[in-house]
């Protein structure tokens, strides 16, 4: 299932921030991880990812650098900034609240694992 663009606009950035929480990643790695770990729900192509990354960079939540990979090719790596960490924490709380509200409304009926918000759970 693919998420509507409007929903993706809200979920995408926090998903990317979450992925970068544990260390720097490059573009294709992010696309693959998002697709794999969200089981295709947050699947996004370059058309969404890269503009999103540039926006996050413009807002100061991530920073990028070019570096050589193990294969010797140059790649652009993204990592969270301090500001990005703060933003991620805030967004996580908000998403948890939304998830609880969704459960209360019966929109999300069987949260798994219990007690964790949907995004965190999906990306854990």
């Amino acid at each position: 299932m693919r998420v509507e663009r409007e929903l993706m606009r809200g979920a995408g950035p926090v998903a990317v921030l979450k992925l970068l929480e544990n260390g720097e990643m490059y573009g294709y790695e992010l696309v693959s991880a998002l697709s794999r770990r969200s089981e295709g729900v947050l699947d996004m192509g370059q058309s969404t990812l890269y503009p999103m990354l540039y926006n996050l960079e413009a807002k100061g939540f991530v920073k990028s650098r070019w570096d050589n990979s193990n294969s010797g090719r140059k790649r652009k790596y993204y990592e969270l900034t301090k500001q990005g960490h703060t933003r991620l924490a805030t967004d996580t709380k908000q998403w948890a609240a939304i998830t609880r509200a969704m459960i209360a409304l019966g929109i999300v009926s069987d949260p798994k694992p219990a007690g964790r918000d949907m995004i965190s759970g999906a990306l854990a």
Partner: peptide, 20 residues
């Protein structure tokens, strides 16, 4: 195919890069 429509991508990238 997974890249998306080039004009739309270009537009989004332009907007984001300009902010940057």
């Amino acid at each position: 195919e997974s890249f998306g429509e080039p004009r739309r991508v270009a537009k989004l990238i332009r907007r984001a890069k300009k902010r940057n």
